[in-house]
Structure formats: structure tokens, C-alpha cells
């Protein structure tokens, strides 16, 4: 690199600078000079922006024509909200179309509808259990079925071996919320009841007779989302007759090809199954979906890139 084409090198400048700045008067003069230079620069910068806008027509282009504003003026009145609606009057209810079942639903009752419609919810299982229990003709014999798998005392016992062959679905405990973000180790608010599986029935733990009785009363189709039985009537509109027939075929008749082959698979795998309940059940594609790992957030993040 060639030396700088100037009378002074950087080093000379530095030395000279400290020498000159020894003098207080000079230092003050220099301070004023710097201040004025910066001030001038900033001022000129503002003027350039203004001049550029005017000369190129950009200011005119951006400003355009102001929209009529009066219609949007905030209403200042203690009886009204900002739009001028009375705070005492209830808003008129409207209907919305449910994205799940496409039926019109009153907007103010949409959330409870959707919860049931999607066959999910913290309480839907509890409601379902209650309904199963109360509809049952032999309540005592069902009581055990409504408990959690985890504390199912019969799990390792031999009495259920036969039933296990026909097992199609598994109501497991994977309903824990995907807690992704730490920084809060555990958020403890408002949902203490969410994690516990509060009792969904499964066909696998019922005897043939029990299943038959139950399916005379309820729709019984297994929800894709919650893996629970639909507890609506046998003519419930959410599931089709075909679904109900298929369910009954596979649950009530062990000789159907599907259930037979699954039983064989379970035998090959060897029984009794190991201690982990979920690993022993025949895995359906649905079940795999539910084991998807929550997406991982990447570490570190800074300012956004220049948005232009």
C-alpha cells in the first residue's frame, strides 16, 4: 500500500493532535468547531431529505390525498365505546359457519360447539366417561374400564390376554402439552387438570358382552384426535354409518381379517408385553402422528434483517 497522498501521516496527525490539545483555549475552540460541524451536518441532512422529496415529487406522491377522517373519529362519551356503541347494550349475536362441520353456529356459543365438534377438550373425555357410566346398564362392571391405563391393575394379568389380541386402539397418556419454551420451567396456571387423563374408555379392556351392550347405546366411533369413543347416540351426525359399521366389525367380530392379522402380529412379538404399555400395542399410523416431537426453536436470534 502506498503512503497516503497527503502531507501528514496518521501518526503525525495523532502526535500533533495531542500536542495542540494541551492548550485549553485550543481545546475549547476545537470542541466548538466539532459541535458546529456536527450541527451543520445534521441540519443539512434534514434539508437534503426535504429538498429531495420536493424536487423529485416523492413528498407529493407519498402524501397523496387525505382520506375523509370524520367517519372514523373516536367517540368520546362515557356511555359509548370508541365506535359509539352503547356500553350497556349487548352486541347482537351473529351466526358463523363452523370450519369443522360447516354448520351455522351462534357466534357466542362457538367455542363450546367447536370443542365438542372437534371431539377434543380437557373435559370432553370426562363428559364422555360420565355419559358412558350413566348410560350403562351395568354400571359397576364398567367402573374399572373408565380408569387410567396407568393404574390398570389388570394390565399384566392373564385374564385379558384374549382381549389384547383384538386391541385396535390405545388410549394412552400422551396428552401433555408440548412445552417448548423454557425460561419458564413450568407454567402453573389455570390448567392443573389438563395432564391427567381423566378416564376415557377403550374397547380393549372390555369383554365382548360389554362392548356389545355399549355399542347398542352409543355411536362408539374412535376419534382420530383423542383416540376416544364417540359417546353420542348411535345416529350421531358426526360419524357416518360406514364408520360405525367398520368399527363394529372390527371390535365385535374377532374373525375379521384385519383384527386376526393384528392378533397374529401381537403373538409373534411375544406375550406378555413388556412393562411399557404403549410399546406393546399395535401401532396405527394415527398413533405415530401423535408422537411427533414438538418443533425445536433455534437458539439465538437478533434484530430483523433490513426489511427493504
Amino acid at each position: 500500500m502506498n503512503p497516503i497522498a497527503s502531507e501528514l501521516s496518521m501518526n503525525d496527525l495523532n502526535n500533533k493532535f495531542f500536542e495542540i490539545m494541551q492548550d485549553e483555549g485550543v481545546a475549547e475552540e476545537a470542541t466548538n468547531f466539532i459541535y458546529e460541524s456536527v450541527f451543520d451536518d445534521v441540519t443539512v441532512g434534514f434539508l437534503f431529505e426535504f429538498h429531495h422529496g420536493l424536487k423529485t415529487g416523492l413528498t407529493e406522491l407519498i402524501e397523496g390525498e387525505k382520506e375523509e377522517e370524520d367517519v372514523y373519529k373516536i367517540v368520546n362519551s362515557p356511555e359509548c365505546d370508541v365506535f359509539g356503541f352503547s356500553i350497556l347494550k349487548k352486541t347482537p349475536d351473529s351466526n358463523c359457519s363452523c370450519p369443522n362441520c360447516e354448520r351455522p353456529v351462534s357466534a357466542t356459543r362457538f367455542a363450546p360447539h367447536l370443542e365438542k365438534c372437534m371431539g377434543m377438550g380437557r373435559n370432553s373425555s370426562r363428559i364422555a366417561s360420565r355419559r358412558i357410566a350413566s348410560n350403562s346398564r351395568e354400571p359397576t362392571s364398567y367402573a374399572g374400564l373408565l380408569s387410567d391405563d396407568e393404574d390398570d391393575a389388570d394390565w399384566a394379568g392373564g385374564s385379558l390376554q384374549n382381549e389384547r389380541r383384538k386391541r385396535r386402539i390405545k388410549n394412552n397418556n400422551n396428552r401433555k402439552p408440548n412445552k417448548l419454551h423454557n425460561g419458564n420451567s413450568r407454567n402453573n396456571n389455570g390448567n392443573s387438570n389438563s395432564d391427567a387423563n381423566d378416564g376415557g374408555a377403550t374397547y380393549e379392556t372390555m369383554t365382548a358382552n360389554e362392548k356389545k351392550n355399549l355399542l347398542l347405546q352409543i355411536c362408539g366411533v374412535v376419534s382420530e384426535h383423542t383416540k376416544k369413543l364417540c359417546t353420542r347416540s348411535t345416529r350421531c351426525p358426526q360419524h357416518t354409518e360406514d364408520q360405525r359399521r367398520a368399527l363394529r366389525n372390527s371390535v365385535l367380530e374377532p374373525s375379521t381379517p384385519e383384527s386376526a392379522s393384528m392378533g397374529a402380529a401381537a403373538d409373534e412379538a411375544g406375550s406378555p408385553p413388556d412393562s411399557s404399555p404403549s410399546s406393546s400395542c399395535s401401532s396405527s399410523s394415527r398413533k405415530r402422528d401423535r408422537h411427533k416431537a414438538p418443533p425445536k426453536i433455534n437458539k439465538r436470534n437478533k434484530e430483523p434483517a433490513n426489511r427493504d
Binding site: M120, N187, G190
Partner: peptide
Amino acid sequence: ARHLAGYEQQDAHE
């Protein structure tokens, strides 16, 4: 976000 499930006692933070 299926774990949000029901609407009852829903927590704003969650």
C-alpha cells in the same frame, strides 16, 4: 395445538 383442547379455564399465557 391440540393440547389446548377445551375452552374452559383456558389460560391466556398458555
